[in-house]
């Protein structure tokens, strides 16, 4: 679509949407949100970019093929189950560690969050791949 309004707006929207998707991803641990919704939001950001600047431009900013996104996402999600196993606990057992952020409290990070990141990346890859495939056919 050759519209200067869309292109200009997309330049501002893309980072905002991705930022928003990450916020949704992060708050998902305790509140509504999470990797799946976050991934969908991120997909919409890139889909918007593809509409404004064309599919090749979108593939350029994604840098690696979409299948790699899917593989990395699934890999992270699977790997998030392994730390528990290594400790002799069941698969996917939640393992937590906390970092002391001097002056900003402590940051608790655990394997469930890792799982969510995996879902986020997988959803991003799968949905964009679907969109691209449909766009190619039409």
């Amino acid at each position: 679509m050759n519209s200067i309004i869309l292109r200009t707006a997309t330049r501002f929207m893309l980072p905002l949407l991705i930022l928003f998707s990450i916020v949704v991803l992060l708050r998902g641990h305790n509140q509504p949100g999470g990797g799946f919704v976050g991934g969908l939001l991120a997909t919409s950001a890139f889909a918007l970019y593809a509409m404004a600047f064309g599919v090749p431009a979108m593939q350029r900013i994604l840098r690696v093929p979409l299948t790699t996104y899917i593989a990395v996402g699934l890999g992270i999600a699977l790997a998030s189950g392994v730390p528990g196993l290594l400790e002799g606990k069941p698969f996917l057992y939640g393992m937590w560690t906390s970092f002391d952020l001097a002056g900003f409290g402590t940051l608790k990070v655990g394997t469930p969050f890792l799982f969510d990141i995996g879902v986020y990346i997988t959803v991003l890859g799968v949905c964009l791949l679907m969109l691209l495939t449909l766009a190619e056919e039409s």
């Binding site: 093929p65 299948t67 790699t68 899917i70 593989a71 990395v72 699934l74 890999g75 699977l78 189950g81 196993l85 069941p90 698969f91």
Partner: peptide
């Protein structure tokens, strides 16, 4: 869990090596 995990990991690896 290994008999489930191993083929799943192989699946993921094969997607990565598309």
């Amino acid at each position: 869990v290994a008999p489930i995990l191993i083929p799943l990991a192989t699946t993921v690896l094969c997607i990565g090596l598309w």
